[in-house]
Design a protein around this nucleic acid. Structure first.
Length: 553
RNA sequence: GCGCUUGUAGCUCAGUGGAUAGAGCGACGGCCUCCGGAGCCGUAGGUCAGGAGUUCGACUCUCCUUAAGCGCACCA
């Protein structure tokens, strides 16, 4: 199968065939695992214990039968141990074949087909255009972008979307905050007091000054009602432009920016509500329209969709938005990246998706926890509204884009991150991103050195003798498991699987490198090719998390 | 009060029912006449928050207790 390692597949097939010969019909879940302990062989299977109940036989008997039927060119020795583990010791041909296949597949090694070209949308960042992106948005950006890359690599048809919240109260507040700064700069602050929940960041002074340069003082005499539209629109568009610039700098791209206003302008909120009513999920009471969350998800109370004053809630707009995703645009799967403070909202949106006749299981929400920025060992607290924050742009400038992305993807998304600025800036082995990149650059250096003398690598096969060395076997083992890591990362929507694997792979390579000579060894060609197989996968891992793989450092 | 998430080495965290629980940082001790030392090797460090259950087997699943964070609007 595409992306899988041929040698690994062949080895697993011998296990499946052996189990099949015991009369088990579905053997798809049985594959060799990597045992933790070296004494337990190179691969192990716990199939005998799992089958004991259905086959009504003792695990040790089953293990014996499995081992007797294991026929493989790769197996040196089989042992039965513990409660019924089948432990397998592999020969050198296995490792040589693993590397040959990985090299042969090149850039598509690991590209296992999970998505089958199904349409999936990843919606992420979607920060309101009320201020610059900060490191928390950066985490959402890095996560969504990397998830999209991983899904694409594993056969999904991916669309990346940013939902622009361009209407509603927050934009209202933004407009009023901007207008207040405009008046303040022109010495008329008392005529336009700063709103209670206004945005206090300095960036609104800059925007107000721009407006003065462009439009002069004409808004001073205009009633708020008339001028506010201009301030809202100007500030939001300006900030949105800066957000886009930051995202581009952060190597994050979108296929579509979807404005909330589109839903209202096209009456999509109205039609979504009509549909809910028709399907019996919404009802009118006390002048408002309600969604039956109490019955559908056991909520404490039903939730309002359309207020008594006729204005739809955010929830109503969100239902219309997801209806547009699933029904109008036909996405078969939708993934949203949200801040963890919205977790209580997931059940409601899932209920709405069910109410529109779609399967809530096709909707995933990735929650991202806070990022604690640590500088000089102390926390830097942040708040957009209070205007106290370090922007994503500043972090990128200080720590570098590669380190920022890698650090934000080292942890699983729903756990907090302590982002240590001082560590991110270090250029040494304490810094994981350099450690991984260095493995790649080192192989590039080796290749340059090797080819300097006119040596060619192209099609020479890898001598099995290389794998007498433990370090070479372990490196090959890491390479053999790459497709499994990709599967785990894709199925779990978990880029941190990739960063963790990349660190282990880089470690295995550095150990191999330090265990002996490479380009002036007798079997140099094979050693360089093994190194290149490792470097190719390091490069792929870095690509999947959006980090550069430099050839020189 | 109800709900969601999280408690794993000094610190930050991996570990989707398998054998003796791992990594990075920090600490300590080694390795450059040599392809890139931005590297390697080793040592110390654990009541997997606590308790009960499920089973051949539990860090992993269930329940209870406890601690922290968050959520429970006709806000977004």
């Amino acid at each position: 199968m595409k992306g899988e390692n041929l040698a690994v597949t062949k080895l697993n097939d011998t296990l499946k065939n052996s189990i099949k010969s015991l009369g088990v019909e579905d053997v798809s879940g049985f594959e060799f695992e990597k045992p933790r302990n070296e004494g337990h062989g190179d691969r192990a299977s716990s199939a005998a214990m799992k089958l004991a109940k259905t086959l009504r036989q003792k695990p040790s008997d089953i293990a014996k039968k499995i081992s007797e039927n294991l026929q493989s060119e790769y197996i040196d020795k089989i042992e039965i141990a513990g409660a019924g583990f089948v432990n397998v010791f592999l020969n050198k041909k296995f490792y040589a074949d693993v590397i040959e296949d990985a090299l042969k597949q090149g850039d598509s090694y690991g590209s296992v087909n999970i998505g089958n070209h199904k349409k999936v949308q990843v919606e992420f960042v979607s920060a309101n255009p009320t201020g610059p992106l900060h490191i928390g948005h950066g985490r959402g950006a890095a996560l969504g972008d990397s998830v999209a890359r991983i899904l694409k690599f594993t056969g999904w048809d991916v669309q990346r979307e940013y939902y622009v919240n361009d209407s509603g109260l927050q934009i209202e507040t933004l407009g009023r905050s901007t207008r207040a700064r405009y008046f303040e700069i022109l010495g008329r602050g008392e005529d336009a007091p700063f709103p209670d929940n206004g945005y206090k960041g300095d960036y609104l002074y800059d925007i107000a000054r721009e407006i003065i340069n462009l439009e002069g003082e004409k808004f001073l005499e205009m009633p708020e009602k008339e001028s506010l539209e201009f301030f809202k629109k100007y500030a939001a568009e300006k900030i949105m432009g800066e957000i886009k610039d930051d995202l581009e700098k952060f190597r994050v791209s979108f296929d579509n920016f979807f404005p909330e206003g589109y839903l209202h302008e096209n009456n999509l909120v109205y039609s979504a509500m009509e549909d809910l009513k028709a399907r019996g999920y919404a009802y009118e009471q006390d002048g408002a329209l309600w969604f039956k969350t109490e019955d559908t998800i056991g909520d404490d109370k039903d939730r309002v969709l359309i207020r008594a004053n006729g204005v739809p809630t955010y929830f109503a707009a969100d239902i219309a938005y997801h209806r547009n995703k699933f029904i109008t645009r036909g996405f078969e799967r939708v993934i949203d990246v949200w801040g963890a403070d919205h977790h209580g909202y997931i059940a409601r949106v899932k209920a709405a998706i069910k109410a529109m006749g779609k399967n809530p299981d096709d909707f995933d929400v990735l929650l991202i926890q806070l990022v604690n920025l640590i500088r000089d060992g102390v926390n830097v607290n942040m708040s957009t509204r209070a205007g106290e924050f370090i922007t994503l742009s500043e972090v990128m400038d200080e720590a570098g884009i590669d380190a920022t992305r890698f650090f934000l993807l080292m942890r699983k998304s729903d756990s907090k991150i302590d982002f240590d600025m001082d560590l991110a800036k270090k250029q040494g082995n304490e810094n994981p991103v350099y450690y991984v990149q260095y493995a790649h650059a080192r192989v590039c250096g080796l290749t340059r050195e090797y080819e300097k003398n006119g040596a060619k690598l192209s099609s020479e096969s890898i001598p099995e003798e290389i794998f007498n060395e433990r370090e070479a076997r372990e490196l090959a083992n890491m390479i053999a498991f790459f497709p499994d890591e990709i599967k785990a990362a894709s199925a779990g929507l978990a880029p941190h699987v990739i960063t963790a694997y990349a660190m282990s792979l880089a470690g295995a390579f550095h150990s191999f490198y330090n265990s002996g000579r490479i380009i002036d060894a007798p079997d140099a060609a094979g050693r360089v090719r093994l190194s290149q197989a490792a470097a190719g996968i390091v490069r792929k891992c870095l690509e999947l998390v959006g980090v550069n793989a430099p050839e020189r450092m």
